[in-house]
């Protein structure tokens, strides 16, 4: 194998390793979430408890469904519709991002505080 091909292989392997490391860092045991925070254009649009089933029309841009403690996007006026194909989220820190709609749906919680004095 020529030098270039070898370095190609090393490059690909490093990218995969970095991705794996980031994946680990991001997925560190997330606790069950308690609420869904929806952000539109960088501002908080609303926060909704995960244990109340409901559908939320987010500014006409997309519709978020909360059902059985999980949140998902059921319809979107954005072109790609990637956010609709995202799997439902339920654990603290999990996120669905709709780039064209500038909407972020994030599960918050795992308890506001761990103890009080």
């Amino acid at each position: 194998m020529k030098g270039n091909a070898k370095r190609d292989l090393i490059l690909v392997a490093s990218v995969v390793l970095v991705a794996a490391a980031l994946f680990c860092a991001f997925r560190v045991s997330r606790g069950e979430g308690t609420a869904v925070e929806i952000t539109v254009d960088g501002k908080v649009y609303g926060t909704y408890p995960l244990d109340d089933d409901r559908e939320i029309d987010v500014d006409g841009r997309l519709v978020v469904s909360i059902k059985d403690g999980r949140a998902s996007v059921v319809s979107s006026s954005c072109r790609g519709g990637d956010c609709v194909r995202e799997r439902a989220i339920s654990r603290a820190g999990e996120t669905i991002v709709c780039l064209p709609g500038a909407v972020i749906i994030r599960v918050t919680g795992g308890g506001e505080v761990d103890a009080r004095v």
Binding site: L22, F23, G42, T95
Partner: peptide
């Protein structure tokens, strides 16, 4: 979007890029 949460996708996108 004024938030770093999109980076949540980076591992997936890096693997896809590879």
């Amino acid at each position: 979007l004024g938030s770093g949460y999109a980076f949540y996708y980076l591992p997936v996108l890096l693997t896809a890029a590879a």
